[in-house]
Design a protein around this nucleic acid. Structure first.
Lengths: 213, 213
DNA sequence: AATTGTGAACCTCTTCACAGCT
DNA sequence: AGCTGTGAAGAGGTTCACAATT
């Protein structure tokens, strides 16, 4: 099997932390900061200096001994690692309360994500327009994905219909799903799912609230 | 220091998984299922049977050798562990797009969480009512928390104001924060924060999309 | 003098393997 | 026979400690 570049498998936690670094580096650059040390970056992200250096070391050597990291250079490097050097196209499935909030969430565009289309099953919603995006019939998602090779889907539908739609999406070439439905999705190995589960997060808080008493 | 019960510290991941178990157990109970084995529960949550048993073993012995677990009994046990035997009161800070979506998110009430009040800084929004909740001036949150001892806050405000409001909330007795702002919040040790960071999740997907190519 | 990059040590979480229970 | 509960082993992730670099 031909291996393009890095052999070692990088953990999801490492990638999550890279995302935090990118956020802080972007702020630092805007604030006109030129250089930063691993310990200062750790301070900003509530991590340790070694953790920062170890994370970065998986992808190359970006620092200067005695000086630290050049902010804009490191920012670009992390952007590239995360695949954010180009705009990422996504589609939205489900135009309920949550879906509509996602549509009008300005941070998406600012962060380099572009919602190309939105779909819903509810005929009363179809045809509505928000933030330049028209809501289309879910039946047309297959047709859409045949033309437009979007790889990422935001899934904001009720739990009971999430698996069925997921199967369709995967069949049509979707490779990444950001799932808001409170259900464990079944997907082939090559498809990546991230879950945003508000109830789960609240239950975690609830547990720690109780144990702290 | 008097220790109520268990000494050992339970990891956040374990608690997250308990939340998944609770979800599936609730479904199983609704479907009329009486008993379930650790391997079947593992199948439903995409985990391993040993993981399920190990997680539960931290809190006691709930199963019957040779038979498995009684669904409704285990469900109640997990509910209690997570502190969901009583309704959990929360307040909402920030009534923008996301905040409003949270207000009208029916799953909250269904899952035993109750939004007691909502606050915003924007005078145009103050006074509006959604789902029986009136949006109040953020200036009144201190006064509110003096009377109503809510311990959990949903923080859906822009990143630039998140830390300042957090400081106020913590001073007024808030102990748990579900943070939607893309920023690492500084809080005292006794305060627990969970983060919901859409950009981070998308960046993780973006990374895995790129490496899969 | 300050800071990076990294092997080794350490720690935490997951999985194995099996004794013991129903 | 089937399944739980758990000590021990294994895997994975984090931190330590320091040589190397500017």
């Amino acid at each position: 099997m031909p291996q393009t570049s890095s052999k070692k498998k990088i953990s999801r936690n490492t990638i999550s932390r890279l995302s935090l670094y990118l956020r802080e580096l972007t702020r630092l650059e805007q604030d006109g900061k030129k250089a930063i040390s691993s310990s200062d970056l750790a301070e900003l992200t509530d991590l340790t200096d070694t953790q920062v250096r170890k994370d970065l070391s998986h992808f190359g050597q970006f620092g200067i001994s005695g000086t630290g990291y050049e902010v804009s250079k490191l920012k670009e490097a992390v952007r590239n690692i995360l695949g954010k050097d180009k705009v990422l196209d996504v589609i939205l499935i489900g135009a309920g309360n949550l879906g509509m909030a996602l549509l009008s969430y300005p941070a998406f565009r600012e962060q380099g994500f572009s919602i190309k289309a939105a779909f819903d099953i509810d005929t009363r919603k179809i045809g509505n327009k928000t933030s330049e995006i028209e809501i289309c019939d879910i039946e047309k998602v297959q047709e859409f994905l045949k033309k437009d090779k979007v790889k990422i889907a935001l899934l904001a539908v009720p739990a009971f219909s999430a698996q069925k739609i997921t199967d369709t999406l995967v069949n049509c070439g979707i490779r990444c799903i950001l799932n808001f439905a409170p259900i464990v999705l079944r997907v082939p190995d090559e498809v990546v799912v991230s879950n945003v589960d508000l109830s789960k997060e609240l239950e975690v808080l609830s547990y720690f609230l109780r144990t702290a008493e």
